[in-house]
Nucleic acid binder design. Structure first.
Length: 582
RNA sequence: CGGGGCGUAGCGUAGUGGCUAGCGCGCUUGCUUUGGGAGCAAGAGAUCGUGGGUUCGAGUCCCGCCGCCCCGACCA
C-alpha cells in the first residue's frame, strides 16, 4: 500500500515555468518526474510505477510473440560503429566519451551493430533462423534541441528488437509478427494511434511503418482522411485527374508578359490582358518550373526541374524522399550561369528534358491533355495553352508538391487533413545493410554462404508514458488508463474523525487483499488538498471515506467520467472491485 | 547552428540606479480549522547564474562567459 503521508511525493500547485506541453507540465506537477539536465529526467516513485507498468506491458507482449529478451550495455566501443560508418554518420547526435587510456566509446543511440555482431558470434546456420531478440535499454542521443519534457529527451528508454531471417519472406513474417505485437501493446497502453507508412530514409530499408499517437504536441506531421487513410506526408500519393483528349484544344501561343517573374503577377496580367471567357485565370492554370540542384553520393551535382501547378509549392521533405540518396538544394545564381537556356522566372518545358540535359519531372496532376500557362524561356514572355502530351512530354512524374488539407486521399476515402502525432513505435524492414557491413552470414541448405536479412523495431517506452499523459488528461490533471496507472484505487480519507481513518485503512487493507493496488491518502491536510491531488495524480478510481461515514456511506468516483456513486460501507468492496473492472 | 526570450529562496514571481531584496505556494512551531488547494501568530530559507566594468552607490546600466526555454534547421 502506498501511503501519502510517507510517500516521496510533492505535488506542485503551479505549472513549472519551463514546461510547454501538457504531459511535461502534468508529469512535473503531479510529482512523477524531475528534470536533472536538458532532456534528462529522474523518475520519482509514482512516475516510476507508471513507467514500469508501461515497460511490463511492452515486455509481456514481446514475450508473448515469442521474442527473446537480452540486455546490452549502454556503454559501447567505437569499432562496431566504425565498421558501419555510423561513428561519423551519426554526427553530433552521438554521445562520445573516452576511457582513461584515451580509447573511444559511445553511449548507444541504437544497437543494430551490437545485435548483428552478437548473432554473428553465435549462429552460423540457416537452421538457427528465424530469430528475434530484443532489449529494453536506455538510449542516448545528444539531440540538438531536447524538448517537451520526456517526449524528446537525450536519455530515454527504448524497446528495440531485431529480426534475423534467411530470406525476404521470412523477414516479412517477422515484420508482421511485430506489427501484431505492437497493435496489442499500444491497445493495452490505452493509446490512440494510427499506423502510417513511412519512408525508410537513411536506413536504407524497404518497408517501414510508424505508429503515431495523434496529439497537438506531436512532432511528426501526417495526414489522415475521415475514411481511415493515414500516411506520412512523404508517403502520400497524388490522385491524378483524368486525361483530356488533345484533339480540338487551342494551339499554343506565346504572349508578351512583361514584369511577371512571379505566379501572382503573371495571373494578374493574364486576367487583365488575356481574359478567359469561362472564368478568371488562377495560379492553378500556370505551370511552375522549379529548378533544383541535386548532390549525388559520389559528389557530383546535377540539375533537376520539377513542374507543378503554380498554386503549389515544392515540399522539400517530399522531394528529398523521392530523390534520395541524392540531396536537393535550391538553384543558386552560379548554377543558373551554367545553364544559359534557363531564364529565371520564365522557364518553360520546351527547353527541358533528359535528352536536353535537364531532367524534367512533373507533378502527377500534369497529365496528358492539360493546358498551361508557362514560361516561354524568354525574358518577359509566357506561352499559353501549352498542352502536355502535345507540346511537351515530361520525363516522368514526381511526388514533390506540397500536400494540402482537402486533397483527396489516394484510396478514395475522403479529403485529407493534416494532423500531428508522437512517434511511439517504428517497424522497419532493414534488409541486409548491417548484415553486409558486419558480414553476418549463415550457411543455407546447400552449404552456401548467405547474408542474413534483418528487421529493426522500436517502441519508445519512456516516450509512451508522456504520450499517454498527452492523450489522457483534463484541466484537473492526469487520467491514467487502468493498466498503466500507479494504483487501481486512490482512497481519500477526509476529516479529522479517527473513525474515518480507521475505516479507510481497513478498507485499504481489504482491497489490497483482493489484489488491488491501493494509494491511500492518510495525510492530515484539508479535504480540498486531497481532492485536488487525487485528480492531479489521475488514479482511475477514487474512493472517498469522509463525512458520510456517519451514515455508513462512502463515495466511489470515476476519475475519467467524473461519475460518483454512494455505496454502503458494508457493500464497498464488491462495488469498488466492480468499478475497477474486476 | 540561425532567430527570439529568460536567469532573483525548493516552486511560481515582484523589484526601470538609493535604506535591511518584497510577495504567493511549499517548509518549521503553536493554537484554531477539516467535503474542494483553511485562519491567526511566530520562524527558517537568497553570496539576485557567473566574471569583469561604470558609479559615492548595481538585482537594476555596459561587456564577456555559462545556463535554460521557445521557434526554425536537425532528428530509425
Amino acid at each position: 500500500m502506498l501511503r501519502m503521508s510517507t510517500l516521496f511525493l510533492r505535488t506542485l500547485r503551479e505549472d513549472p515555468a519551463d514546461a510547454e506541453v501538457p504531459s511535461h507540465k502534468l508529469l512535473v506537477r503531479a510529482g512523477l518526474v524531475r528534470r536533472v539536465a536538458p532532456g534528462v529526467f529522474t523518475w520519482l516513485p509514482l512516475g516510476y510505477l507508471v513507467y514500469r507498468n508501461v515497460e511490463r506491458i511492452v515486455r509481456e507482449e514481446m514475450d508473448a510473440a515469442g521474442f527473446q529478451e537480452v540486455h546490452f550495455p549502454a556503454l559501447l566501443p567505437r569499432e562496431p560503429y566504425e565498421a558501419t560508418g555510423r561513428w561519423t554518420e551519426y554526427g553530433e547526435t552521438l554521445m562520445r566519451l573516452q576511457d582513461r587510456k584515451g580509447a573511444d566509446y559511445l553511449l548507444g543511440p541504437t544497437h543494430e551493430e551490437m545485435f548483428t555482431l552478437l548473432v554473428k558470434g553465435e549462429y552460423s546456420s540457416y537452421k538457427d533462423l528465424p530469430l528475434v531478440i530484443y532489449q529494453i535499454q536506455t538510449k542516448y542521443r545528444d539531440e540538438a534541441r531536447p524538448r517537451a519534457g520526456i517526449l524528446r529527451g537525450r536519455e530515454f528508454v527504448m524497446k528495440d528488437s531485431y529480426s534475423f531471417d534467411i530470406d525476404d519472406e521470412g523477414l516479412q513474417r517477422s515484420y508482421d509478427r511485430h506489427r501484431d505485437a505492437y497493435i496489442k501493446t499500444f491497445d493495452r497502453l490505452g493509446l490512440d494511434y494510427v499506423i502510417v507508412s513511412a519512408m525508410s530514409g537513411a536506413m536504407g530499408g524497404s518497408a517501414s511503418e510508424e505508429f503515431l499517437a495523434p496529439c497537438e504536441s506531436g512532432e511528426d506531421t501526417f495526414v489522415r482522411s475521415d475514411g481511415g487513410y493515414a500516411a506520412n506526408v512523404e508517403a502520400v500519393v497524388t490522385v491524378p485527374p483524368a486525361e483530356v483528349p488533345i484533339e480540338g484544344l487551342p494551339a499554343a501561343h506565346v504572349e508578351d508578359t512583361p514584369d511577371t517573374p512571379t505566379i501572382e503577377s503573371l495571373v494578374d496580367l493574364a486576367n487583365a490582358r488575356f481574359p478567359r471567357a469561362d472564368r478568371p485565370w488562377t495560379a492553378a492554370d500556370t505551370l511552375k518550373n522549379v529548378v533544383l540542384r541535386l548532390e549525388h553520393p559520389d559528389g557530383t551535382t546535377s540539375a533537376l526541374v520539377v513542374g507543378l501547378p503554380g498554386d503549389r509549392e515544392v515540399d522539400m521533405k517530399r522531394l528529398e524522399a523521392q530523390v534520395s540518396p541524392a540531396v536537393p538544394s535550391p538553384f543558386e545564381e552560379a548554377d543558373f550561369a551554367a545553364y544559359p537556356q534557363l531564364v529565371k522566372g520564365y522557364i518553360g518545358p520546351q527547353v527541358l528534358g533528359e535528352d536536353r540535359g535537364i531532367p524534367y519531372l512533373v507533378d502527377p496532376r500534369v497529365v496528358s491533355g492539360t493546358a498551361w500557362i508557362t514560361g516561354a524561356n524568354e525574358q518577359g514572355k509566357h506561352v499559353f495553352d501549352l498542352v502536355c502530351g502535345r507540346d511537351f512530354t515530361p520525363d516522368g512524374t514526381i511526388e514533390a508538391a506540397e500536400v494540402r488539407d482537402g486533397d483527396p486521399a489516394p484510396d478514395g476515402s475522403g479529403a485529407l487533413h493534416s494532423a500531428r502525432g508522437i512517434e511511439i513505435g517504428h517497424i522497419f524492414q532493414l534488409g541486409r545493410k548491417y548484415a553486409e557491413a558486419l558480414d553476418l552470414t549463415v550457411l543455407d541448405e546447400n552449404g552456401k554462404s548467405r547474408v542474413v536479412t534483418m528487421g529493426s523495431y522500436g517502441i519508445g517506452v519512456s516516450r509512451a508514458v508522456a504520450a499517454i499523459a498527452e492523450q489522457h488528461h483534463d484541466d484537473k490533471g492526469l487520467i491514467w488508463p487502468r493498466e498503466v496507472a500507479p494504483a487501481d484505487v486512490h482512497i481519500v480519507a477526509t476529516g479529522k474523525d479517527a473513525a474515518v481513518f480507521e475505516k479507510a485503512e481497513e478498507l485499504a487493507i481489504a482491497l489490497e487483499d483482493e489484489g488491488l493496488r491501493v494509494l491511500y491518502d492518510d495525510r492530515k491536510v484539508s479535504p480540498g488538498v486531497k481532492f485536488n491531488d487525487s485528480e492531479l495524480l489521475g488514479v482511475p478510481t477514487i474512493v472517498v471515506v469522509g463525512k458520510r461515514l456517519v451514515d455508513g456511506m462512502i463515495e466511489i468516483k470515476d476519475r475519467a467520467s467524473g461519475d460518483r456513486e454512494e455505496v454502503e460501507l458494508t457493500a464497498a468492496i464488491p462495488a469498488i472491485l466492480a468499478a475497477c473492472g474486476r
